[in-house]
Structure formats: C-alpha cells, structure tokens
Design a protein around this nucleic acid. Sequence first.
RNA 1: GGGGGCGUAGCUCAGUGGAUAGAGCAGCGGUUUUCUAAACCGUUGGCCGUGGGUUCGAGUCCCACCGCCCCCGCCA
Length: 587
Amino acid sequence: MDIWFNPSAEIEKALSKAAAHTDGFDHEFIPGVRPTEPRFGDYQANGVLPYAKTAKANPRQLAEKLTQSLSAQALLDTAWVTWEIAGPGFINFRLTDAFLGAWLQAYGSREAYATGAGQIYAGKTVVTDFSSPNTAKQMHVGHIRSSVIGEALSRLFAFCGAEVIRDNHIGDWGTQFGILIYAIKKAAYDADAPQADPLEDFERLYKEGSAATKDDPVALAAARAELVKLQQGDPENVALWEKINRASNEAFNEIYRRLDIRFDKTLGESFYRDRVEAVYDELTRAGIAEESEGALVVFHREHARFAKQPFIIRKSDGASNYASTDLATVLYRAETLHAEELVYVTDGRQQDHFQQLFLTVEKWFAASQRPPIAMKHVWFGTILGEDGKAIKTRSGAPVRLKALLDEAEERAFALVSSKNPDLAEAERRDIANAVGVGALRYADLSQNRTNDYLFSWEKLLTFEGNTAPYLLYAVARIRSIFRKLDLTPGAGIADAGPLTTESERALAHKLIGFVAALELTMADLRPHMLCTYLYELAGEFSSFYNADKVAVDEPEVRAKRLLLCHRTLVTLETGLELLGIRTLERM
RNA sequence: GGGGGCGUAGCUCAGUGGAUAGAGCAGCGGUUUUCUAAACCGUUGGCCGUGGGUUCGAGUCCCACCGCCCCCGCCA
C-alpha cells in the first residue's frame, strides 16, 4: 500500500466509508477532518457533533459506534494512525512515528509535492491579471501588492496543476496622453535624444501640461485635440505615443527583472481599442446596456445597489473607459486564450467595478450562449506609512518602487556586512539582494491581503519573527550542515532510524502540514496562509536544530536527522519559490 | 443616504463554527569550548470595540450601535 500523500483526505474518506456501514449514520454525515493542535494529535474530526444534533443522538455514543466500525472494517491501518474520542465527541487522530518516517522517505522533492498538489487545479486554464501599471509614469508603491501577490498566485496556480497565462493589462490608452503630448510639443522635448531617465521627464512634462491646461481653455482644447489626433492615428502622435510606451516598458521590465516577475502577455488597454465597438453592439442588442444621460450604461435591476448605480461602459463623449476595455478583455481571454477562470489582483477600492463587471459578463455570456467563465477579484488593502495613512514620501509624492527596492537592498547590505564582514563584497551584494527584495516581498505576502498594513523598515529588516530573513536563515543553516558534512542535500538519509526525540517528532508532524497549508492558501487565494505555515516550520526547525545535533556518530540517528533537515529544506525552498523569494546557500 | 473593510496583549499581526485565544516585538530571566546566536529556552501580559441573537459550542455567523479607513455617473 502506498503511503498517503494527504492523510487528512484519507481519514475523511475512511470515516465516510465507516459511516456508510454504521447504524445511526446516513449519507448526510460529513466527517469534518481538519488539522488540529499538537496536543490533540494531527487531525480532528468534528462532524459527529453537528450530526448528532440533527439525528437527536448522543454525540459520544455516535463517535463510539463510528470508531468501532472503523476498527471492525480495518479502514485505517493502526500502524499509521491512532485515534481516540475526546471531549463532547471529537475524534482525534495521531499519525504514528512509523507513518511519519515512511512519509518523509516517500515525499522528498518539489516534484513529489507538485504531483500531490497538482490535483487542485488540474488542467484548468487560468488567466492572472496583475501589476497593471500605467505608461508614462513610473511604478510606485501602489503597484507592489498587485505585482507581488499576482506573481505568487500565478506560481501557486501552476504548482497546483493549472495552465497559467499571466497578463499585464497595462494602462497605455488613457486620457493622460492628450496632456502629455501637448506638453511634449510645447516644451519642444526631443523624445528621440538619449535621456538619462525619460520617465522622469514625462512625469515632469505631464505635471507641466496639467498645470497649463487647468485654467486655460485654449490649452485644454489643444490637449484634447492631441488626444483626438492620437486616436485617429495621426503618425506624429502615434510615434510619440509608441516612444512613451517603449520607455515605460523598459522601466517596467527592469523592475520585473529585479522582482523576478514575468508575464506571458502584455496586452494593454490600447490592444482592445478596436474591440470595444463589438461589445457595445452585443450588449445593446441583448438589452443589457442602455443609454443614460448620454452614456451607455448597464443597470442590474435585481441588485440592491447596482439597480441605481450604473456601470458606465461608454462615456457620453463616445470614448471608451476601463469598463469598456475590461469587457472586451474578458471576451478575448475567453475566446482567444480559452481561459476558464480569470483572476484579477487589484486594490479593494475597485470592488464595485469588478462586481459590476462580473454581473455584466454573466448576463452577456448567457445571452450570447457562450460558456460561463469563472471570475475572481483578489483584492487587497492599502500600505500605510508610520503615521497610519497611505504611504507617501515626505513631500507627499508616491514612493517609487525603484527607490523602495534600492533602499531594501542597501539596508540589507549594511546588515549583512555587519553580521558577516568576512564574506567577499560580491557575495554580500548577492545576499543583500535576496534578503532585501525577499524581505520587502514577504512583508507584503505574509499579511492577510484584505487588510491594510503598516509599512516599517524596522519591522521588515529586524530579521526577527515572521520575516523572509528568518526563513532564509533557516535555509542557509540547513545548507551549511550538508556543506560541513560534504554531502549534497538529500544524501545520507537511507539508513534513517525511528524518530526518538520530541523535537524530531514536532518537526516531522509539521512537515506533513505543507499539504494542508497549500489547500488552505488556494481555497481563498491568500498567500499569507502559506507564509504562516513556512514560519511555523522554520520555527520547529530552529528548535530542533538547537535541541538535537545532526552531525552525530550513530549512523541511524544521523541519517534520520539529515532526512529531517533535507525535507525541511525542500519544503522551505518550494514554499519560498512559490512566493517568489530566492533562497541562499549562506548568509 | 447606500455599500465594502477593519477593531484581538503596550506595539505589529495570526487565528477553517470546535476544546484552556496564539506569534513576533517591547519588558523580565536564562542558553554558546558543539552543525551560522540574524538563533534557542523560560516568563510577564487579554471583558477578542459595545450590546443583543443563533448554536451543543461564537474572536469567527446574524442584528443594532460606537470608532477608524475606503468606494458610490462618465479616472483606473
């Protein structure tokens, strides 16, 4: 018999089977197996309690009958798992040392984990829509959560068996171009000349243009005229627009390179500019969209709020907006990319927009007899500064992502240099990169995404508690053990003896928890659940590391502890890779 | 006015309707001739905003209220 990959699921199945052959149970019974606190074992089944209520039976007696049936039918091998009834009618399950040892031997690689996890999203095509900066502007702190969470979720989906298409839906077709082109021409700015930082120039020019058009109707008309020319395909303006986008994309790509973020598609709003007319037609003909105050809008009569709050899909001046392009984008992703699920990673302020978008698409696809498409809005809160308000620079400007990354690396470099001055500078730079960028990223991912969170360099880089450096340090220490023993990680584990110490057992139990942590993370698309697990795992490892020496003489003890070290390493490295965090040999 | 989110230890945050609510920091006290002390161990600290309700069981679900943040017709 193969060792179960997911004991929780196996126990659930066994209990269901047992119930099917036990008096007093029917098919309504749900075992309700879930991980539990170590003092109760590995898993608890809660399902008997609510079931007893509806069946008007004594829960403890029901639990007795169920566990007797489990034993009588030999549905669970007691060499692997033991159980007992506790409290009012819980059934607690504890994995045996024999099972833990066998599981650790059986599942010891990223591939093994991926095989087990690959069931969750097997074969599904998922489009992830994240980052989405606007061209002609630099990326700022407001883009970090979408970028980092989106990248992590993309990796998680792929790990769980999905075909993932990452799409950067950049804002490259907004009304900002009228003002910007106007300002560029007015300042006689040479967009062809090599510039140190063209985006810096564009931002400055945009501000100038914005100021110039604010109270001057003539200038405003001129700016609008530039926008119209651009939209009508005027060669000069189109060329300028392309230059702006090229410079922007180069800057974006540099940020993505530093963050190890990649995209399969970068289809900005401009890509859909010729695809919105069809959307207007279809929605109008289907009676979903209607004219209102000169605009084309969608009301959802059955909805308490959206019956009156319109979803504006075409502005009264005839121009498209982000609702128009988002609708066209859904269609493209469904029909051309064959997506079955769309995942949008944006800030929480856009919740209304996405609810309206989803409702509209549902009706639209139903009316046009297209297969329905699953859509999820993965939203997140605001990053707050030390004053408790949305983070800004001292002058009130948005914090640039580039500056944030630079500072993270600088601070990490200073720290590495003070902790480990003997390392060569090149290595300290490399460590600073992994630690600094990893810490920045982990600070974001480890928070429940739906909450605002307080940004603090102190907290980020104190390297204590639930931080990337703590996890990276655990990885480095494991690698160091193998290095000192002149073994490649994974070697020297064949003769592993039985678990004996409490810290060995605690670590082994925790290692199996990876499966449940992954399921929990995917259920709500909340990466912080994986972070919490990895932190707890690193904590168990640190306790084990301090309590039990690995490099001992007894071959069985040494092999067993090397096995624990290696599985911890694999789990931490797999988890951190899914979060987009690079690990280190030493730090 | 309508809607969303949040309120848990001094601070920052976890907590799937389940058992005695957890972690890190800060505070106090320890651990190193031993594989990286960026570590580990111990300890102090709670009317889970308030009041009702549902439930065998509520920090978690429902209702009301208080406080803070955000959104609500042509920005994204």
